[in-house]
C-alpha cells in the first residue's frame, strides 16, 4: 500500500521530509494494547460467532418451514386436480371397471369378437363383390352372435358418449365403425325376426348414413 507510484509524484522534498518524520516517529515507543484488552476483543469475537451459530439453525428452520408449506400446497393442488379427473376416467372405463356380472362380462367379450369379425368382413366386402355363398355364411355366423341385451344397450350408450368426446378426425373413423356395428345389429334383428324393430332401426340408419351401401339382405 505504500508503493503507489503516484505517491512519488509528491516531490522529492516532500519525500525527504516524510522520511525524516518517519525516522523520528520510529523512535517512539511501540505501544501495544494491554493483554486484558486483547482478551476482551477476542471474547467479543467468540460471542459474536456463538450468536451467529445459535441463529443459524433458526434461519435453516425458517427455510425448511417455507419449503414444507410450498410442497404441501402443491400436493393439495395436485390432489384436487386428480379428484377432478378421476370421475372422467371412471366414466370412460366404466363399462369395463363396473362389470361385476360374469355373464355380462362374457357377453361383452363375445360382442368385441363379433365387432372385430364384422370389421374384417366389411373390408373384404369393399375389396371384392359378395357372392351368394358369402352372404349365406355371413348370415349363419351372424346367427351365432348372442342377442342384444339391456346391458349391451347401456354399453352402446356409453360407447356413443365416448365417441362424442373424441377429437374430430377420430370421430369420422368411429362413425364408420358405428355404421358397421349398426349393420350387424340390423342383421341380428333380421335373423331374430324382429321385423318391427328392424324397420325402425333401418329407417334410422338410412337417415344417419344416407350414402351407406346396405348389404343385399337388408335392401328388401
Amino acid at each position: 500500500m505504500t508503493s503507489d507510484p503516484r505517491d512519488q509524484q509528491s516531490g522529492p522534498e516532500f519525500e525527504q521530509d516524510l522520511e525524516a518524520v518517519r525516522s523520528a516517529w520510529s523512535g517512539l515507543e511501540q505501544a501495544d494494547p494491554p493483554e486484558l484488552l486483547n482478551q476482551a476483543v477476542l471474547n467479543t469475537a467468540r460471542r459474536e460467532l456463538n450468536t451467529r451459530r445459535r441463529n443459524r439453525p433458526l434461519r435453516w428452520l425458517g427455510g425448511f418451514a417455507t419449503a414444507t408449506v410450498i410442497v404441501l400446497a402443491l400436493t393439495i393442488v395436485i390432489q384436487q386436480d386428480q379428484q377432478q379427473t378421476t370421475p372422467v376416467l371412471k366414466k370412460t372405463n366404466g363399462f369395463k371397471l363396473d362389470q361385476t356380472d360374469p355373464a355380462a362380462s362374457k357377453s361383452e367379450v363375445d360382442r368385441d369378437d363379433f365387432e372385430e369379425t364384422a370389421r374384417r368382413e366389411q373390408a373384404e366386402r369393399q375389396l371384392s363383390p359378395m357372392s351368394s355363398e358369402d352372404a349365406e355364411s355371413r348370415i349363419k355366423r351372424s346367427a351365432a352372435v348372442p342377442p342384444v341385451t339391456a346391458s349391451d344397450a347401456a354399453v352402446m350408450a356409453v360407447a356413443e358418449e365416448m365417441s362424442d368426446s373424441l377429437a374430430e378426425p377420430e370421430k369420422a373413423a368411429d362413425r364408420i365403425l358405428e355404421a358397421d356395428a349398426w349393420i350387424e345389429r340390423l342383421l341380428l334383428l333380421r335373423e331374430t325376426q324382429q321385423d318391427e324393430k328392424l324397420n325402425q332401426e333401418l329407417a334410422a340408419f338410412r337417415e344417419a348414413y344416407p350414402d351407406y351401401v346396405l348389404p343385399p339382405e337388408l335392401r328388401d
Partner: peptide, 10 residues
C-alpha cells in the same frame, strides 16, 4: 500514513 502504512488513495 505512519502507523497504518496506508497510501494516499487509501
Amino acid at each position: 500514513k505512519l502507523e497504518a502504512g496506508l497510501d494516499l488513495q487509501t
